[in-house]
Design a protein around this nucleic acid. Structure first.
Lengths: 219, 219, 219, 219
DNA sequence: CATGAATGAGAATTCATTCAT
DNA sequence: CATGAATGAATTCTCATTCAT
């Protein structure tokens, strides 16, 4: 998990005056990040509150000032550290004039960039697979807020292409989007399993994925 | 987990004479299945040996007659309950004469059948995602023994199609197989998350997946 | 404990016919010796019945055919494997004509021989020191049957010497015997502790002990 | 074990404010003494951490705040409750001018006083005999730190007497010291066995022991 | 606010003992 | 007689949570 490194690490010991207030305001965030890191490394059940505390540079008791209990802490980690890949409005604002095949490519690049650069989506997916059964609403809301919107943008791109006559007329079913985007999820799972010695070069992979999509939707 | 129901449930209490030896032979299996069920429901760490025992119709101590400890039990569950989807030799024996596009379809049907009908592959995938980091060799060997061979058959089908001139010359790279089969894994993950209220009708999904593949490899 | 090696080791597997009956008769003895060895190596509480059984070449259940339970087994080990150093009658029969200083020397030699050659007295002393508080009658009867008689012989020797005018008139108090024989116990304890790298050469030690005694009782 | 009674008994329940810090400082000591008492009564293996806790007026968990585990606790009991009989320097400072036979007597009185008054040396000897095989370094270091220095002082006294011409020229070999002091160890063992109904009157015993020594070393 | 000592409910594991074969 | 599978009480050790300071 070397790539997962966040602010919390910097915590620990600074006694400068005035810093206190600023620190206090950041506490919950620091704790969330520390908790995230621990959950990633050990899983929910095996993570000890004390270790989260140590990582956040505070003591056990402090955790309980900000979070009801371990379950709440876990749910807050998932809820507050999940980051949407896209802001749909902004996406269209920035790229409206582009041709549709470029939009598909842009979309893909953004998805992979997001998945590769930051560990949150990936690891939160792990949390949900591992312990989601104990927190059913969590999984549901995560899907609604983060997965679905992403699929939706892709569908909108396909629809645009159809309207413009560059994509096949039957390209944009929600099922098709789902299938066409699968390789991105597959790569994520592979990283979670961390077992493939021969993980593909990312760039090649995205290219291949893009080709696969285009062969399916190009007129 | 209603669908996961196995022999172990039938255990509990029968004192008929002669039963002893027969029971002893079955015990490990019964325990493995009970453990599987519990691990599925609660995850590795949250599963208590005593619950596994109860489910298997024995007591704590008995578990330890057959398995060194909880870790071993877990590993044995993964190792011994994993079932290969295909026997490659048999696959070719049975279907050698078929045209290649039919082979692709057969392959897909078998994969989805396996994934849908029996919970083992799916749930063992969950185990590996959840706790695989604590058992690295386990993940690796599972990949080698169960995932890789399946990918390999698919590649062989693609190669056959290329040799016979019905598939495109660049169809069969290992990366491409991986990408083309992604939708099957995606569906599995979705089931693991158990959050999609609108899970697609399996048959439609397989059809769509098949179409996606064919559009990519057909000449 | 390399020096402790007894018949029990030879147990295990012999299926020759006829041997059965002989073996059966020896079972209790074999078990006692196996138990002794285990108690020596691990102490009472840490010794497992199953290990005793394995060492005796039988199975757990068999132990319970011959001994009520672990406590009984322990007590029987102490009771039945304790060996008296002397038979007083025989001692006098054999050595009656000897001069008293020679008797003292003979007595000492026998004591040290007994303590050195066979591990029973020593290790049973360990048992009593370790766990005697849980078996009070055991300690008492061991003292009465094995320690006291030995002290008594020594007193009788001293008395004989006094009667014959070769030992001082105040030589033979029971306290004095006790004090004069202390070095033998001390050496035993040292062996039990097994920590002295510089354990004295036995022969020198006995000589020194003899000298010490003689300086105290010689006229 | 009526004579073994220590501070820990006074523990249990006091909630007065400010007590916290003071208590925390005492905890390890209290636990050590409670553990000592339990080990004395039941032996290492049979002692339950929970009983130690109860005796110390705390709960199980607290023990583990101060000691890694049961083995560490045991070793710390032996290490930290062992008390040297003498401070050699101080002994010489206080008694340098005394004649050597008086030094011997002083030495003996101190040894017996120490052994009689406080149970630590005696019971720690029991621990080492019972369980020392599981903690070999412990026995070794105990011998080096507590037994050997005591023997050494005695040898120095003998040497002084030889130099001054009041003791025999061959009095001070290390073997001889060992033999001459044996009766003290013997008495200790007897107390450990707690079986002699006719334990000698201590004062008589020390007198007899002193006489025995003097008969051996006086010119 | 923050601390960290203390708690005590659990969970894994062991092993004396039983009893069907 | 002998076996060894099964039991379940007992024990060590952990860790979420509380609360006095």
């Amino acid at each position: 998990m070397a790539e997962i490194k966040n602010a919390s690490s910097a915590a620990a010991a600074d006694n400068a005056p005035g810093v206190r207030a600023r620190r206090k305001a950041q506490r919950p965030q620091e704790i969330l990040h520390a908790a995230f890191d621990e959950f990633v490394e050990r899983g929910y059940t095996a993570t000890r509150i004390e270790d989260v505390a140590k990582r956040a540079g505070v003591t056990k008791g402090t955790i309980y000032l900000y979070f009801q209990n371990k379950e709440e802490l876990f749910q807050d980690v998932v809820r507050k550290l999940s980051q949407p890949i896209f802001n749909e409005e902004q996406f269209w604002l920035e790229h409206q004039s582009r041709p549709c095949d470029q939009l598909v490519r842009l979309f893909l690049d953004t998805v992979y960039e997001h998945m590769t650069v930051n560990p949150y989506s990936r690891e939160i997916l792990r949390f949900l697979i591992s312990d989601g059964r104990s927190f059913p609403e969590l999984t549901a809301s995560h899907y609604d807020e983060f997965v679905k919107p992403t699929l939706t943008i892709f569908e909108h791109i396909l629809e645009k292409g159809m309207r413009e006559g560059v994509f096949r007329a039957d390209a944009a079913t929600s099922q098709m989007s789902y299938i066409l985007l699968s390789p991105a999820l597959t790569l994520t799972i592979d990283k979670l399993l961390d077992c493939q010695t021969d993980l593909p070069e990312l760039n090649d992979y995205v290219n291949a994925h893009y080709e696969m999509i285009m062969r399916n939707i190009r007129k």
